[in-house]
Amino acid sequence: MAHATATVDVMRPPAPAERGVDVYNLKLGMWVFLASEVMFFTALIGSYIVLRFGASPNPWAQPGKVLSIQITAFNTFLLICSSVSMVKAYASIADGNVKLMKVWLLVTILCGATFVGIQVYEYTHLIHHGFQPSGYREGSELAELAAANPVPYGAATAGLYGSTFFTMTGFHGFHVTCGVISMTYVFIRALRGKYSQQDHRGIEVIGLYWHFVDLVWIILFTIVYLI
């Protein structure tokens, strides 16, 4: 490489500071993607607010009557923990500790997968007791309870309650599932030794996505389960 200094590298031209925005493509792409995700959940939550507080004069079911706050509170705790473990994974690789990064990444994946598992358990349970997207199933336990106590069970608004509950939590669960699958992909790459202290972009980018999904859940848990 005697004359290497004279060669113009045409693939990577000299890049003064004014070129680009100093965030690598993949990360910038993820930020932009998350911007569109914000709009997605805003539209979803906005529709929920309109339907619950704008469209109907009848109150909705009281918190804790149909949905179990305890189980979901635990699930929320799990998801927040997984955000912490994600940060630990990123911090480990930034320190150059590849092994520890794999451990924390695996913890994050397991937390996420457990969250989805508990959500599936919750759904089957709810549907079993008669709560479904169209409201309380006729002749089910919940339908009878609602007939006896129309106000606490929001008998008049059960249809919208079911519609919004399953749509919002379902889309969030779908996002968590996609996150778990993507983190598994990152984990496989980690096992193949693709990440190092110098280059660990995959971990950072999937981390951004994961924190966003957690953040959305905290909002959803508050407005769907607690209010």
Binding site: M39, F40, A43, S47, N58, P133, S134, G159, S163, T164
Partner: peptide, 30 residues
């Protein structure tokens, strides 16, 4: 803008396929 129409179409799709009531006045929708 496209995420917003995605949500609008998702709600319509659920109304048509899964029995939700987002846009059905008869069931309290809007």
């Amino acid at each position: 803008a496209f995420p917003v129409i995605t949500v609008a179409l998702v709600l319509l799709m659920f109304d048509r396929f899964f029995g939700t009531h987002f846009y059905l006045t008869s069931a309290g929708g809007d």
